[in-house]
Simulated scan of single mutants.
Amino acid sequence: MLKSLLNAVFFQLFWFACVLGGDNWAVAAIVVYFVVHHVYFVNTPNEWWLILLFVALGVVIDGALIFDGWLLMPNSIWTFPIPPPWLLGLWAGVGSLFLHCLSWGIDRPWLLSALAAFFAPMSYIVGADFAEVSLGRSTIATWALMAFIWFWLMQIGVFAAKLTLKHNGRRHRA
C-alpha cells in the first residue's frame, strides 16, 4: 500500500518536472524518474515493455493530436516530427503506473477507464497552461476527445498489464 502511494506521489512530482521544466529539464527528470522507478518499483523486466508500449502510444496519439492541430506546441529546440521528450516522458510515466498505484484497476478496468476519462483531460488542460501549449479547439471539444481517448487507453493498459503479469506466471489480486 505504501509503495503504491509512493509511486503515485513520485509520478506527480515527475509530471510537474516535465510540464514545468519542458525541454530543459525533461531529460534529467526522465532519467531520475526511471532509475528510481527501476530500483524501487520494478518487479519484473517485462514491465519495461508496458512502459515502451505507452511511449509508442504517445508518439502515435499525441503526434496525431499535434499534427491535426488539437495541441499547438510552443517553439522548441525539438525539431523531430514526434512529440517532445517531456510529453513522451509523461506517456512512459503513465505506463509505469499500471503494475503499481493503478494495480487496483486491473480488476476494475471500467472504473479505471471512467476515472481516466474525467481526470486525464484535466491533466492535459492544466498541463497545457503550465507548458505553454495551446489547445487548437475549444476546451469542451478537447475535453471530450481526451476523455474518449483516455477511456480506451486505460483498457489497453489493463490488458497489457494482465499480459505482463500472466507472462510472469502471476495473477493479480486486488
Results as ranks from 00 to 15, higher is better:
Ile51Gln: 03
Val32Thr: 08
Gly69Val: 06
Ser96Ile: 02
Gly157Cys: 05
Trp143His: 12
Val158Phe: 08
Arg171Trp: 04
Ile106Glu: 02
Ser4Lys: 15
Val36Cys: 13
Leu5Phe: 15
Asp62Ser: 07
Ala26Asn: 08
Ile77Pro: 00
Val35His: 07
Gln12Glu: 10
Phe10Val: 02
Met73Phe: 12
Val36Gln: 13
Ser4Thr: 03
Asn24Cys: 05
Leu72Lys: 15
Cys18Asp: 03
Ala8Phe: 14
Asp62Cys: 01
Ser76Met: 06
Trp150Gly: 00
Phe80Tyr: 13
Asp68Arg: 15
Ala128Gly: 11
Thr79Val: 08
Phe41Cys: 09
Met122Cys: 14
Arg108Leu: 07
Ile140Asp: 10
Gln12Asp: 03
Ala92Lys: 00
Phe34Gln: 14
Glu132Gln: 15
Leu99Trp: 02
Leu50Phe: 08
Val27Asp: 09
Phe14Ser: 06
Trp110Thr: 12
Val9Gln: 13
Met154Thr: 07
Val9Arg: 14
Arg108Thr: 03
Leu165Asn: 09
Val60Asn: 03
Ile30Gly: 14
Leu52Ser: 06
Trp70Asp: 02
Gln155Thr: 03
Phe16His: 04
Leu71Ile: 05
Gly136Tyr: 12
Leu57Glu: 04
Ile66Ala: 08
Phe54Met: 02
Phe11Gly: 12
Val60Glu: 04
Glu132Ala: 12
Asn7Arg: 06
Ala17Ile: 02
Lys3Val: 01
Trp70Thr: 02
Gly21Glu: 02
Asp62Phe: 13
Phe67Pro: 00
Val60Cys: 04
Pro83Cys: 00
Phe14Gly: 01
Gln155Trp: 12
Asp62Gly: 02
Pro84Asn: 11
His172Phe: 10
His38Gly: 14
Trp48Ile: 08
Val94Glu: 00
Val32Phe: 09
Phe34Arg: 14
Phe67Thr: 05
Val32Asn: 06
Glu47Ala: 09
Leu57Ala: 12
Arg170Tyr: 04
Pro85Arg: 01
Ala26Leu: 06
Ile82Lys: 11
